[in-house]
Structures are given as structure tokens and as C-alpha cells.
Computed example of a mutant assay.
Amino acid sequence: MIITNVNLVLPNEVVKGSVEVIDGEIRSMSNTLSQLPQAIDGNDGFLMPGLIELHTDNLEKYFAPRPKVDWPPLSAMKAHDTQLIGAGITTVLNALALGDHRGKLRHEILDQQINTVVQSQKNGTNRVDHCLHLRCEVPHNTTVEIFERYINTPGVQLVSLMDHAPGQRQFVNIEKYRTYYQGKYGYNDAQMAEFESQQREYSERWSAPNREEICGQCRSRNIPMASHDDATQAHAEESKDLGMVIAEFPTTMEAAKASRDLGLHVLMGAPNVIRGGSHSGNIAAHELATAGALDILSSDYYPVSLLDAIFTLAHDPRNKLTLADAVKLATFNPAQSLQLHDRGVIEEGKRADLLLTHYQHGQAYIDSVWREGKKVF
């Protein structure tokens, strides 16, 4: 397969030319246009590596599309997979919550989601390469037990540690915490006060021992780990000491810069880029990009935001990111953070996970997606 008349988004530049794919790998590239009649004409679009998503909780929306409504697992998986490939994502880590205090539903469908991801990958029915990201809510008495149930599951590529207790990390601002949970669950003031008190108690009792235990088990298995919502330099130093390689959604410039100085890859949400800031009132992703403290983008809860955020950052005069730089935030950098060295870049010998898109009227419109040289969209 030859794709020609495209703007090849390479690691450090964009070059007009062609790419040749053989047996699912990129065999060669050229800065000239192919004259072969069988070559695919990219119509002057941008050809970039398929996007790599490290943290999306989008899957559970399909398993439970409405309260008290569960959906057939393989049908839910198919819909999720279709949305991701339509967003240009060719590798995804489905982030599933363990020990989450925010409702029983996630626990009830957890087995089903994990089994479905594993089975659909085994069946070969997915168009995206689906892996697992275990999100461990550390201030909970069941977290380690649930973690140990799933840690040896095929496809686990990342483990993150979270503490959503009031006054901690994402919710240092207590008013933001109350606004979020009262809006989410409809708590009145008395119910909210009881919930808040309970979460503080859980955090004080379980966060530290659970964090140490889970990190120790991940290190022994050589499974990459991510911190979550670090807010201070002390948080970043703790994450480094525990063996983290990614700092997910740091809430302050202090934490982001400290994480980066310590060698962690700083991950921020693409929705934060599109919306111009954090819905929790924390640091804006574009501020980190301007400061040179942003390494990875994640679509988080909105898959299409990943590609849109790339172009948004590349066109933002407040930072110095070129399109090649911005593309690496969702391709090369996430691949490197997980040591997935076979993908994430248009380079000879790498997997032909490719995305062809045109940028028109301020939006990126996807034309085609290939995974390992096979057209899947």
C-alpha cells in the first residue's frame, strides 16, 4: 500500500510526500509524490500516527447508558470501539475504577467490562488495540483486594493511584468538591456533609498503606504507574519515590514542573484544552503547554477531543508548539511512556497505525484510519 499526496507529520517536521506500507509496517517514506495508479491519493491531507489514548473512562458509558439500564457487553464494546476509531485512536487504555466510592454501579459492571475487553481482543473483533488501565481509588478498604483480583489480567498496561477525598489533590478547594458531588448525586447539605466526613475518614485510614502496597506490587511486576491530581512538589516527589512514570492531571503549575523535573511525563486532558480550562478550577492545560511542561494529552471522557486538542494547541499563539510537536503529545510520547516502541511515529519499521485527516473551518475531519496497515475506518 502506498499513500501519496499527503503532509507527513514526522517527529520534528511536516513533509509533503508519500509512505509505503508492507505487511502492516511502514517500509519507506519519500518527500516526492507517487505516480503509481494504485497509490491512495491523500488529497493534501495530514498523515500522522494513529492516536494513543492512555486514560479514557468512556467504556462504562456504553455498559450503563442510563441509570438502571445495562447493555449487552459485546454490543457495548462494539459501540465504544466504533467511537474511538472514529476519533482516530488506534491504541487505547480503558481506564476502569477500582475501589471507587462514587457508586456501586462501577463495581457491579467491573468484571463484565474487563472480561469483555479481554475477550473482544482475543476474538479479533476490535478495530482499536484495546488495553487496560487500572485506576485505583486508594482511600477505600476494598481497593487492594480488587486490585489483586485484576492485576494479572492480560492487557494491563498501566496502574494509576487516585485520592478524590475532600481537601486532597483535585479537590483542594472544598467548595468545588461540594459543587461537583452535590451536582452529580443530588445530595442535600446534610447528605453532603455526611458523605464528606466519610471520605475524609477513608482517606486518613487507607490512602497511605494502599498506595505503598499497590506500588510495591506494580514495581515487582514492572507495570508502569501514574500519579493522579498531584498538587504540590511534595506530591511529585512522593510519586517519583514510589516509581511513577506519568503524572496524570497535575492540578498546579508547581506540581507539573516538579513532576517534569523529576522525569515523569506530564499528562493533561484534551477536554481541558478545548474548553480553555479545568472543570474543577485547576491549572489549564494551555498554561502548561506555554510553560513547556506538557508531555501527553488524554481524551479522558470525550474521545473526539484528542485530535481537536492537537490542532488547537498547534494554532495557539501562546505556545511554541508546531503541529509535529502537538501530534507527539498523543502519539510518540504516550507510546514511549509505556515502552510501546513499535508505534506512535511514522518511521521505517514501525507499525502502520495511521490517521489521515483534513483541517477545515477550524476542525479536523478524519478521512481514513489504518491499524497495522489494515484500513479500519
Results as ranks from 00 to 15, higher is better:
232 T>A: 08
245 V>I: 12
101 H>A: 13
272 N>Y: 03
322 T>N: 03
67 P>F: 05
263 G>R: 09
310 I>C: 08
353 D>G: 09
61 K>L: 07
235 H>R: 08
4 T>Y: 14
292 G>C: 03
242 L>G: 03
142 T>I: 04
377 F>L: 13
151 I>T: 08
310 I>S: 11
193 A>H: 09
268 M>H: 11
171 F>H: 03
324 A>H: 09
131 C>D: 07
332 F>T: 15
312 T>C: 14
260 R>F: 00
258 A>T: 14
211 R>Q: 13
312 T>K: 15
135 R>T: 05
236 A>R: 06
171 F>I: 01
278 S>F: 14
126 N>E: 10
192 M>C: 11
290 T>S: 08
242 L>I: 00
122 K>I: 00
304 V>T: 12
250 P>D: 07
15 V>G: 00
342 D>L: 02
193 A>F: 01
108 E>Y: 09
62 Y>L: 04
245 V>L: 05
360 Q>G: 00
168 Q>Y: 15
154 P>W: 09
350 K>W: 00
22 I>L: 15
153 T>P: 00
181 Y>V: 09
221 R>L: 14
67 P>A: 06
4 T>H: 08
84 L>Y: 10
259 S>M: 03
186 G>N: 07
227 S>A: 15
270 A>E: 13
37 P>V: 04
167 G>K: 08
161 L>Q: 10
246 I>T: 09
92 V>S: 14
60 E>W: 05
106 R>L: 05
206 W>M: 05
105 L>W: 11
234 A>L: 10
228 H>M: 10
230 D>S: 03
89 I>V: 14
373 G>V: 05
11 P>V: 03
291 A>Y: 12
220 S>C: 04
261 D>Y: 02
279 H>V: 06
234 A>C: 03
130 H>E: 08
329 L>N: 06
328 K>V: 03
377 F>Q: 13
165 A>S: 15
351 R>Q: 15
49 P>D: 12
38 Q>K: 11
146 I>V: 14
71 W>I: 00
210 N>K: 08
327 V>Y: 01
26 I>A: 07
212 E>G: 02
157 Q>A: 08
310 I>H: 13
196 E>N: 04
65 P>G: 07
12 N>P: 01
168 Q>D: 12
253 M>K: 08
251 T>Y: 02
322 T>K: 04
144 V>P: 04
177 Y>S: 00
66 R>D: 11
178 R>Y: 01
338 L>R: 11
